[in-house]
Design a protein around this nucleic acid. Structure first.
Length: 405
DNA sequence: AAGTCGGGGGT
DNA sequence: ACCCCAGACTT
């Protein structure tokens, strides 16, 4: 069969298949460009099943572009809590404000305008233009690169940006007349349900007959993708500081800086330790816990002006981001008097070693993720009800929930 | 081109 | 454990 016919076969069979079996998803209720836009932002690097409940909550809380544009940012972030990549939420709201101010609250049927919105890159531009407006623009995500790599037996590394650009041109050439939205969704639906990353199920595939990778018996070898570097480990000491007096029953939390990792989210106060102190978090070296506890206490005292006394170990927790692996140790602390001290087991050594002092001064200067002069000054005492209002990343949410149970 | 940005589910 | 996910942005 001619190459041209292999392409026509692919497009036509895939489109028919999609129109028969497509899933009934909340954002497919209609083609409201705002609904499409929100769904595509949420779906960036996030699975459909994860997004669905967030999407429903988000749309009921912010049903229109105007509603989103006018909402307090903390409410938007709270709706995004646990979904990850929080800059998506802030960029989405910035985009909503731009649509209100520049386009009268109507998402423009114009590629350049859509592409100019914050958080909207090449994929999302194509998705919005094709799904909401049925414009013949490609929408190439991980699914599409995988499906097309296999069907056409492409051996380019899909981790390279240049590959996506090339596949975009191929994808554009496959769009059937007048069916851009359905076809682009069909490609992704196939990648999500049939042509999956591992062990693709070729038998039910609507285009298996002319799939080059399958005909070569290489469907499980494609696509080719260089693997990512493993996340670097970071050791962190954290504290759950219990309030007293008017703050009895409350815990000290702080808001992160407005840029960078977990920007503007709330967290329990913590401190980065040098990488060569891995044994400090080794449970086989409990004698070091006194030093670690004193360290986090002193950092918090300096930062808050409060007299903070770590009392005992609470729990250890690991959390893995894409590029960092946090190994955390949490201490319970309170606002003790000068006589208060960390209460170690009998065999533990209490006191602050010279080494610990050195680490502390490094951290206070610049060694944590906070640059000098950017230490978070926003501390707050919260109870369980306050926790429901402020946005926390999941790692701290889990600790707080465990603490209050 | 490489690094920065979350978190969870599948295998 | 490792992989990937309806990617975008910064350097």
């Amino acid at each position: 069969m001619e190459h041209k016919d292999v392409k026509i076969y692919f497009s036509s069979e895939l489109l028919s298949w999609y129109r028969l079996i497509k899933r009934d998803l909340p954002w497919r209720m209609n083609r409201d460009p705002y609904r499409v836009w929100v769904s595509e932002i949420m779906l960036q690097q996030t699975r459909v099943d994860t997004v669905i409940p967030y999407y429903n909550t988000f749309m009921s809380k912010f049903p229109t572009v105007q509603a989103l544009a006018e909402a307090p940012e903390s409410e938007v972030l709270k709706c995004w809590e646990g979904l990850g990549y929080y800059s998506r939420a802030r960029n989405l709201q910035a985009g909503a404000k731009e649509v209100v101010e520049r386009y009268g609250g109507i998402v423009p049927d114009d590629k350049a305008s859509v592409a100019g919105l914050k958080g909207v890159g090449p994929y999302t531009t194509g998705a919005i233009m094709s799904i909401a407006f049925n414009r013949p623009e490609p929408a190439v995500d991980g699914n599409v690169m995988r499906v097309l790599s296999r069907y056409f037996c492409l051996e380019e590394d899909i981790a390279k940006p240049a590959t996506r650009v090339r596949i975009e041109k191929l994808a554009a050439s496959l769009i059937p007349e007048g069916a851009a939205g359905d076809f682009n969704q069909a490609l992704m639906e196939l990648g999500a349900l049939v042509c999956t990353p591992k062990s693709p199920s070729c038998l039910p595939c609507p285009v298996m007959e002319h799939c080059a990778a399958r005909l070569d018996g290489r469907e499980s070898e494609l696509p080719i993708k260089t693997k990512a570097k493993p996340p670097r480990p970071e050791l962190r000491a954290a504290a759950i500081v219990l309030g007293s007096g008017v703050n009895a029953g409350k815990v000290l939390v702080r808001q992160r800086p407005d840029t960078g990792l977990l920007a503007q989210m709330w967290e329990l106060p913590h401190l980065l330790l040098p990488a060569d102190k891995a044994d400090w978090l080794d449970e086989k070296a409990p004698k070091e816990q006194g030093e670690l506890a004193e360290l986090i206490g002193r950092m918090l005292e300096e930062d808050t002006g409060l007299l903070i006394r770590p009392r005992r170990w609470f729990m250890d927790a690991d959390h893995v981001f894409s590029h960092i692996h946090w190994k955390m140790r949490f201490y319970l602390a309170d606002l003790g008097d000068e006589s208060g001290a960390y209460a170690p087991a009998a065999e533990e050594t209490v006191g602050i070693a010279a080494e610990a002092e050195a680490i502390y001064s490094v951290n206070a200067a610049a060694a944590s993720e906070y640059k000098a002069g950017e230490m978070p000054s926003v501390y707050r005492w919260i109870d369980k009800e306050d926790m429901e209002k402020l946005p926390f990343p999941n790692l701290f949410l889990r600790i707080l929930k465990e603490f209050w149970e």
